[in-house]
Amino acid sequence: MINIGKINTLRVVAQYPFGYALAPIIDNDSDVYEDREHDDTPTVTLAIDEVTTPLADGQQVDVFVATDQRGDLYATLKVPHILVGETKVLKAVSATNFGAFFDWGLDNDLLVPNDYQAQPVSAGMHYVVHTFFDDKTKRILGATKLHYFLKEGGAYLNEGDKVECLVYAKTDLGFKVVINQQNLGLIFHSDAFKPLKVGQATDGVIKTIRPDGKVDVALQRVDKSGRDELQQAILDDLEAHGGISTLTDKSAPDAIYSHFNVSKAAYKKALGALYKQKKITLAPDAIRLNKAN
């Protein structure tokens, strides 16, 4: 079968003055493609001007299968910025009374109809867009209304899981994020210890899965395991640098985040715990690893 909106490995079954007919690979050892008049296998056309080196009959080629404005299929050697089913940041290039068009790396821009826009789109701005194949129009379309396609529940997620997040909206509560390209979640402002903005990718940790299934995400682990992990990271860092570090509880939050990927508050708590355990000595300008450790 031909997967619309995906990269397909297809086989050349015919050549015409305007391009090549490509079909799915059913059996490499079969002669099923020799007589196209008696073969109802679907084909897609790759334009001749896309090919720099002529293709041979039966040759396999990797192509992206797209749809034109009429919904007809065509193949291209160009790889778009986004495939069907993915959610990524795209730039809007124009807006009309029926929808907005986004640059996705192909000659024909990606249409996001008005009904699929979370808010009016402005040309030149970047938005988080999900792509899908619309059975009604037979076209590949985009959407910024992500909840139409991504679930708010986290059935496959567990608290403490490390995840990849993409910020897609800012609210009074915090930042809405796409989790692992599959789910929607929220980073509360209190858990966002570094600046975040729409379209930004960031690592995160599942903080809480609520009774209704909705997912809260933190930028760092806040449970005992996370605290122990940070304390050990500090000790390892001291050991690697001769038992001394100038990164103290007075250091700038950005410096602490850059080094340990945690908030200043978490770092100060970890230093306090290590001090109480007599594993480090604190001074205004440095922390030192106690010789006993």
Rank of each mutant, 00 (worst) to 15 (best):
T171I: 12
Q181H: 05
G185D: 00
A201R: 14
R221I: 09
V215R: 07
F149C: 01
Q181D: 15
F149K: 00
I206V: 15
I206Y: 00
I187V: 15
N183H: 08
D161C: 10
R210P: 00
G154Q: 02
G204W: 00
V163H: 01
F188W: 15
E159W: 02
G160M: 13
L184M: 10
G185L: 05
V167F: 14
D172R: 02
C165Y: 00
L150M: 08
V217E: 00
L219H: 03
V222C: 05
K145V: 14
K194T: 14
R221L: 13
I187W: 02
L173A: 09
Y148K: 06
K176W: 08
I187E: 02
I209W: 01
K197A: 11
I187D: 01
D172Y: 03
A143N: 08
K207H: 14
Q181F: 10
G174R: 05
P195T: 06
F188I: 01
Y168G: 00
V198E: 11
V177H: 07
E159D: 05
G199A: 13
G213E: 08
L141C: 08
D161T: 04
H147G: 05
L166K: 06
P211T: 12
N180Q: 07
A218V: 11
H147Y: 14
L219N: 07
D203G: 08
D161S: 06
A155N: 07
E152M: 13
Y148I: 06
K162D: 15
I206R: 02
Q200I: 04
D216S: 07
A218N: 08
K162I: 11
V178Q: 01
G204Q: 04
F188V: 01
D172L: 10
Q182S: 14
V217K: 00
Y156N: 05
K145N: 10
N183L: 12
D172N: 10
Q200K: 08
K162W: 09
K197V: 09
L173N: 09
Y148D: 04
D212F: 13
L157E: 00
D191G: 04
H147D: 14
H147A: 12
G160E: 02
L186H: 04
G160K: 03
F193V: 08
G160P: 07
G213I: 14
C165I: 14
L150P: 04
S190K: 10
V163M: 05
T208G: 01
L196I: 12
A169C: 06
L166P: 04
F188M: 13
P211F: 15
G199D: 06
P195M: 14
G199E: 06
E159S: 04
K176A: 02
D203R: 00
H147W: 12
V167H: 05
